[in-house]
Design a protein around this nucleic acid. Structure first.
Lengths: 155, 155
DNA sequence: TCCATTTTGACCTTCTTTGACTTTAATTAT
DNA sequence: ATAATTAAAGTCAAAGAAGGTCAAAATGGA
């Protein structure tokens, strides 16, 4: 328990929140050493927890004096939702992808904690009693439908 | 005598009662080793003794650092919610049955207007791209899952 | 005996972690 | 200036670490 990837995620998110511009620069190898993991695990964490869908942007530079820069994006609610609906929910969605999108919406306070939990419950694997390939497709559709509600006026 | 499944059930229920939030996290393989049974027997116990109708909710995570989380739901014998769960969510649900239940929840102020819309979107027909017979079953499961959220302590 | 419940095991899926190899940039030596 | 070296970060696939599923076999009570 207490996955290292989660610890790294929390660590970075705290750093970002404490930063002035919601943006930090790290050294991949330093961080890996600090958490006593392989450097490529840092990339794994970035890929799975700090991508655009989660509201982050990554820039980096290799070579001597290289760095990785993580920036929290400022996003407009409607365009963020629309992007996700249009681009990310085109096809199917795994459970964890869905959960991470929903968490991101909550972190941006586009939805309440309880709404997030309701949404996560709705796309949970155990509800989707269907052949494997269908599951992810249904999940994507459900999330799409739910997010559409947030885009309605008065909604 | 003294079926292992019963022992595991008692063990878990004791743990849950002693816990603060009526919620525990276990490692499936650890527990199986402890009771000297096969790991899948843990799933059997969860399925037969800790399901929604018995007032529990199961969440889990696979992969390194995985776990199974069991949460006792609030069981209020007199509540309207309880009635719905017992009487209406036994089997599968058509779209209009689902909508009727959700509307009722809103009228009784168990959920907000927006939560109702989210729920309706989640169980909408067009999200459930599945063979007809499966649709209603999936819909029922989704609604059950979503209601579980409302029945958790901490809210 | 018969049927429902329990137990087991083989196989599957998901997520994380690691490591070997690659690419890029800066620094240093020629 | 150019080439060689060093210091980063990137990629990708394999290994590892969980939990899930399903059906057959075993068990036990009516």
């Amino acid at each position: 328990m207490a996955r290292i990837s989660d610890l790294i995620e929390d660590f970075l998110k705290t750093l970002i929140q404490e930063s002035v511009e919601e943006s930090i620069e790290i050294q991949r190898n330093e961080l890996a050493k600090f958490f006593d993991c392989s450097p490529s695990q840092i990339n794994y964490v970035l890929m799975t927890r700090f991508n655009f869908n989660q509201g982050y942007m990554i820039e980096s530079q290799r070579g001597g004096g290289g760095y990785i820069k993580i920036t929290r994006l400022i996003v407009d609610k409607n365009s963020f939702l629309q992007h996700i609906i249009k681009e990310e929910l085109k096809h199917s969605l795994t459970k964890s992808e869905a959960n991470r999108i929903i968490s991101a919406l909550m972190e941006y306070q586009f939805i309440s904690n309880r709404e997030a939990k309701i949404m996560q419950a709705a796309v949970d694997d155990n509800a989707l009693v269907a052949p494997l390939n269908l599951k992810d497709q249904i999940r994507g559709n459900i999330l799409k439908n739910m997010l559409s509600v947030l885009l309605k006026r008065e909604g």
